[in-house]
Design a protein around this nucleic acid. Structure first.
Lengths: 147, 147
DNA sequence: CCGGATCCGTTTCGATACTG
DNA sequence: CAGTATCGAAACGGATCCGG
């Protein structure tokens, strides 16, 4: 338990600072936000889903990032009630509230880099962002209530 | 020149992919967005300004990130016309267009973590985001035309 | 099988000293 | 002022192993 203890310590003794700096302390790396993306947009919620994603994250790194995201209150981890062998990860409300930032990130990249984002989705994000967000939340609520 | 050649190659042979993944390839690390923040919100535009920031980035890392941000078209680097000994960094339009994403990042952190963001600024970002953005752009234009 | 943990070679980071 | 050079420390990443 030394690892999680260390994490807990480092997250509690955080002194206040620039919001961007604090954000980057939490998810300022190559992988954390990809996991959030998988959970938020791609309906992935299991360890193997993430490690099977196109970006091919190593399992040790994945385990570390999931633990970190859990300790910062962005994802939760629990045993699948339908199959005790499986673990289900899920975004918290705090995690879901990263959606606007991720949407801006998608739009920026779609405008400036070559991406495979479907035109339709990009248009939906820009033209009717509120509806897009509402749908995302609704999906999230549904996931949470179904048992 | 081997270094910049390598960068150029790796940025040209990029195949299209998920916009979030591509964004994180560009600025998915602890430092890149802090430099953008300094340029965008804090009026810093010189090497020593960045390295003197509260987060204390090492000079070699700073040099590397500036080079990377330049190669991806987010910042420009040029000699200060008023003082040939000095270098001035500046955001490109592409770099400025990261503003909405950074604003969402600030708002998320302000809501969920302890930050030192002034209440007034946070309120300005939420209540009148368009005006806030417009002011940012105006400042940027002014910086660009003054010689 | 699933969700990791461990091992280990390689890459990157970061602090400091130094330079044009 | 705006960076390099150096070098030890840390993180990464692939492969393999393991417990339930």
């Amino acid at each position: 338990m030394p690892k999680s203890a260390k994490r807990a310590a480092s997250s509690t003794d955080r002194r206040s600072g620039c919001p961007i700096s604090i954000s980057l302390e939490i998810f300022g790396d190559r992988w954390s936000l990809l996991i959030v993306r998988d959970l938020m947009f791609k309906g992935r919620n299991r360890f193997a889903d993430f490690s099977g994603a196109e970006e091919q994250i190593a399992t040790n790194i994945l385990a570390d990032r999931l633990e970190r995201l859990e300790s910062t209150g962005i994802v939760t981890r629990r045993v699948d009630p339908a199959d005790a062998r499986k673990i289900v990860y899920r975004l918290t409300r705090k995690g879901m509230e990263l959606a606007p930032m991720l949407i801006e990130m998608v739009l920026w990249a779609a405008r400036h880099e070559e991406t495979d984002a479907p035109r339709a989705q990009v248009r939906a994000m820009t033209a009717d962002r509120d509806a897009f967000l509402a749908a995302l939340w609704q999906e999230w609520e549904a996931e949470g209530t179904k048992r």
